[in-house]
Each structure stands twice: as C-alpha cells, then as structure tokens.
C-alpha cells in the first residue's frame, strides 16, 4: 500500500505514453482517406466552380482543350467493362471454388488453389502486356481493330476472377460439416447438395466476393488502358474500342493543366464515390449476415 516505488510509477506512465503514441500513429493511418478526399476535392474545385457538375454529363463531347467535359462515354466504358467481366468472372470463380471443395481430388485441389493465389498476385501491367501482345491480335483476326471492349472484358475477367474465387473458397470452407452430412444422409447427389444446401449457406460470403471483384474491376487502370484502344466513345458493339475513367486519368494526367487537370480530379472523385458506395453496401450485407 505504501510501496509505490518510482520504478512502477514510471512504468505505469510508459503504458500511457505507448497508448497515446499508438493513437497518434493510428490517426495518421485513419486520416489518409480524409486527406485523399480533401485533396481530390481541392484540386477539382476550380472546374466544379466555373463549369459545374452537371456539364460533366451534358456537354456534347470530351474535348478539355476546348472546354468540353463530357465524362459520360468514359462512365459507360467503365460500366460496360465492369459489368461484362463481373458477369463472366462470378460463375467461373464460384465454380472454381466448388471445384476445389467438392469435385477435385485432394491432389488437384491444393495446386489449383495455389494457382488461383498466384493469379491474384500477377501484376496488372503483366496482364495488360499479355493482353496487348496475345489477345488483341487474336481479336483483330475475328473483327478488327482488335483493341476493344471485348479485350478489356476478357482481361478484367482474368484479373478479378481470383478475388471472387478466393472469397468463395473461404466461404465454402466455413460451411458446417453437419449440413453436408445431413444432405449425404438424405442421399442427395453432389450438385443437388451444393445448390440446395451449400449455396444458400454461403450466400452473403459470395455477395461480398462479388462486391470486392466489382471494386477491383472499376479501379483497374493499366491493363484496361493497354488493351481497350482508348477511343472516347460509347461502344455499339463489343469490338469497338472504349476508354474508361481510370484510363482517361492515366492517359491525360501527364500533360493536363488548369481546368483539364481539375476535370481529371473530378473523375477521380467519381471513382472514389463508386468505391465508397460498394464498401458501404458490403458492410450492409455483412451486417445482414448477423441477423440472417
């Protein structure tokens, strides 16, 4: 009761010191998002101020040098590429995970899972390069010019497939064994078990996976930039070249000045808004899982 030596007193405050310095550090980490938002807004503000947000959707075309800032074709480009690749990658990814868990003999399941992990680690510039030198010439033989929405969709599909496959794989691993034993005891065949018992059990995990892959598809820049042809237009067929929001920034940022530069920051803000919407909906889904 009396022996509060200085030694322990100082140690007590070491704890407090540590806690406060950690808080300081975490605050830095936590405020980066704020900083990003603030800087995008600050840089975009001039053009928002004297052009207005509406004109980014109503201007006749994207000719920043002439003060025309229509982002719609790029927005459509992003949406088309995203939708196409998510539509193809989702079934492929889920089937991949199903393969690992329920179809593949264990000698195949392990290496296949490693392969998906490796695909997840390949840099986007390598995918883009491969698309440029292999895929684009192939498409050009079917229907010129080659660099096209189709090439973008195919490359994006390969890139986002690991995301959904790994997410589905993790969800399938959490399916309680008694569900499977119960289904087996009822004499249900394999696919019937998967469709009727497994998929309903992992629905929210799969949905989170879809949201994550969508985020990746929206944000992808380099690969898309390398294979899509980058013509500012709303495509009429999948063989038409397109330009996405991300590619637009990467292409023009190097020489953009003034309002043009600010306009690129506006498209950065649009991208960020899309991602935040996705994160929020992912949160909403995972909260639903707690009650569902």
């Amino acid at each position: 009761m009396t022996s509060l030596s200085n030694n322990t007193l100082s140690r007590w405050s070491t704890d407090e010191l540590l806690c406060w310095s950690l808080r300081g550090i975490a605050t830095i980490a936590g405020t980066i998002v704020m900083l990003i938002v603030v800087f995008l807004i600050v840089e975009a503000l001039p053009v928002l101020h004297h052009v207005g947000l509406l004109r980014f959707f109503t201007d006749p075309s994207w000719h920043p040098a002439e003060g025309l800032y229509n982002l719609t074709p790029m927005l459509w480009g992003t949406l088309f590429a995203m939708t196409g690749s998510v539509l193809i990658a989702t079934p492929l990814g889920i089937l991949s995970a199903v393969f690992c868990h329920y179809y593949a003999p264990s000698v195949l399941a392990r290496p296949y899972r490693r392969l998906i992990e490796l695909l997840a680690g390949v840099p986007s510039v390598v995918y883009g390069f491969w698309g440029l030198v292999v895929l684009v010439p192939l498409i050009a033989e079917i229907q010129p010019p080659g660099p096209s929405l189709l090439a973008g969709i195919l490359i994006l599909t390969i890139m986002i497939l690991p995301t959904i496959a790994l997410m589905a794989d993790a969800s399938l691993a959490n399916v309680p064994q008694q569900y499977l034993r119960g289904a087996a005891a009822l004499g249900l065949p394999r696919w019937a078990t998967i469709r009727g018992v497994v998929f309903p059990a992992v629905r929210s995990g799969l949905f989170t996976g879809v949201i994550l892959e969508t985020g990746r598809a929206i944000g992808e820049t380099m690969a898309i930039l390398m294979v899509c042809g980058n013509v500012v237009q709303i495509p009429s067929t999948i063989f038409d070249p397109i330009r996405t929001l991300t590619a637009n920034i990467a292409l023009e940022m190097a020489y953009a000045i003034g309002d043009h530069r600010a306009a690129l920051f506006v498209s950065g803000l649009v991208l960020l808004a899309m991602i935040v919407a996705l994160v929020v909906s992912a949160e909403w889904v995972s909260r639903g899982r707690m009650y569902g």
Partner: peptide
C-alpha cells in the same frame, strides 16, 4: 475504404 481506393486515385492524390 482505403483498401478499396483504385490505385489511379492514389496516383492523383
């Protein structure tokens, strides 16, 4: 949110 921010937006920032 930071984990989902597209890399090109990091570039802009």
């Amino acid at each position: 949110i930071l984990a989902g921010v597209p890399s090109i937006v990091f570039g802009l920032f």
